[in-house]
Write a protein that binds this DNA or RNA. Structure first.
Lengths: 317, 317
DNA sequence: ATAATGCGTGAGTAATTGCCCATGAGCAAA
DNA sequence: TTTGCTCATGGGCAATTACTCACGCATTAT
């Protein structure tokens, strides 16, 4: 039985109780009898020590920084889901790390027993993520592609992700039998009116969760590399304020869809509702930075999987 | 597919769960659903994070009674550094509390940007302290062991601390490739003359700060438990006035190195200068009391990390 | 003086957590 | 391929902790 409390002050006792609890690992009952108080009082002292920040908890693991960044990003951009993976400074890959993380997250969704609609965009990052998926049987779910797989020249675009996904995921899957960009907006209307396309569009609108890559602008951007846009078209687009694209939908620096002929030619499904579903962007890298930031700012996405370095840049200003 | 969902590894999950639990303050149920696992698994991850020392808890409050004791000890024994942690009356552990405090102090030294030499002894307490250290990169420092790690039978002594330390601290480290006790003093001269040993000894003499455990005498003493001394040798030693031991150097009740054949056989480096450097003892407990007191009295150490109860006894007379 | 206010207390109860066990997957040796 | 081992898992249950409520005691304002 220890001295009376008043002689030390309440915070002192809180510190002592907190020490016994967290450092020495005693139960509150033991602390109570050691300090000559009731168990409830011991509990109060412990929680007081926590409330007064007398107890500092630290996590000594690289992932700690990631979680901090994720929380900061979530707060700053009002996101539903953020995942920050450790950066691999030595690697210039735009997929290492986030692909695995994205795969893990996709897997989490697919493991749910209640049926969901999972929508998926395209891009190298997403392809890498899907390649990480294990084989899962989930006949209860549906997987729908938001974007077409046909290039401007009629060839199949390499990075149509849904077919890779179909290899691993035993679920109904709905590709989008369309080009990414049509030549004129009228064409889009015609194509979208087709029954098959129509039903895929309808399913995509019901998506519970969506995974999309985020494309940057520039002459090295995916849209150019994959032959959807010519260099001069791209440069003109950038002059008109384009900052990035998701499934071909081009947005400006504020993340607002660009009012521009280009967006009238996008044949992709609209990005599912950020109000009623999760739309998770997967992207990292300095080149994609402003595109990611715009997408976040304009709430084109409400979830993000990125890496530490990118997260830090996103938080910088 | 054999891909590990553990692309980030089990420890990372443990870190994540631990962070969510201790830092974010979520319940294990929330963590479970957030990570897509069962609550039990979440609980396991949290306790794994604790077991693996991923979670470090420290108390940021000067407990008045402890500070008072520390000041009194510093004055009484003319010490440079004293730390007193709360006692845990119910626990018989000789390390709980002081190990954490010692780790924090070691960390403080290692965080210095100017290069230092940190010397380290051995013992269970010191081992426990080193196990609390986080991973630190400090290539500017050097860490040197004062004692060897080879037992009388040629086996490696379990409590050689420097190897544990090398796991966490990224700095050059210098083990002492010697037994603690050699069979004859001549052997010691031969061994110490070796170039490798010579340089380690030289470095240890330059130590800026030293952390040592304090061993008591008795048939349950560390020296006996670890097989360096037989019971009858120990009893004879006690008859000749031995009161305690630091790195194998046996001293009497006044803290003077015992003039005795035993000390001629100690192969450890001399304890670094108490005039020009900090030599901090880490010890608590009734059994070690007279050894601690002797070490303080004879200025074998000029710093101490102990607990309240021990501090009170040390001040009693 | 007396009532209002604030703070701490203990009791009871709901929520949360820790632990043990049986099970099954993965893996290595036979 | 089989056997045996290790290890993670989920369920169930006991222990522990958090919260709410009503009360007592002191201080303060009227």
């Amino acid at each position: 039985m220890a001295r009376k409390l008043e002689s030390h002050g309440r915070l002192d006792d809180a510190a002592r109780a907190g020490w016994l609890y967290y450092v020495a690992g005693r139960t509150q009952d033991e602390i109570a009898s050691a300090m000559g108080i009731s168990r409830q009082s011991a509990q109060r002292l412990v929680s007081l020590a926590v409330a007064e920040r007398l107890i500092k908890v630290r996590l000594d693991h690289p992932i700690a920084a990631c979680l901090e960044l994720a929380r900061a990003l979530r707060d700053k951009y009002d996101l539903k889901h953020v995942e920050v993976v450790p950066s691999d400074a030595g690697s210039s890959s735009t997929t290492v790390g986030i692909a695995e993380a994205a795969a893990a997250e996709i897997e989490r969704w697919l493991k749910r027993s209640d049926p969901i609609v999972l929508a998926i965009g395209t891009g190298r990052t997403l392809k890498a993520a899907v390649d990480q998926l294990p084989v899962i049987e989930c006949p209860q779910h549906r997987v729908v592609s938001l974007t077409g797989n046909i290039g401007p020249d009629g060839s199949a675009a390499y990075y149509n992700v849904i077919f890779s996904m179909a290899d691993a995921i035993k679920a109904r899957h709905y590709p989008m039998p369309l080009p990414v960009l049509v030549t004129a907006s009228e064409d889009r209307e015609v194509l979208h009116a087709q029954a098959l396309v129509r039903s895929t569009l309808d399913i995509s609108a019901q998506a519970d969760v969506t995974f999309v890559g985020i494309g940057e602008m520039g002459i090295d951007a995916p849209l150019c590399l994959d032959g959807f846009l010519e260099k001069d078209e791209m440069l003109a687009l950038m002059k008109r304020g384009a900052a990035g694209e998701i499934c071909g939908w081009v947005f400006d620096g504020q993340g607002r869809l660009l009012v521009d002929p280009i967006n009238d030619r996008v044949a992709s499904a609209p990005i599912p509702s950020r109000e009623t579903s999760s739309v998770i962007g997967i992207a990292k890298g300095k080149r994609k930075l402003s595109a990611i930031k715009a997408a976040l700012t304009g709430h084109q996405i409400n979830g993000l999987i990125t890496d530490e370095a990118t997260a830090e840049f996103l938080l910088r200003d």
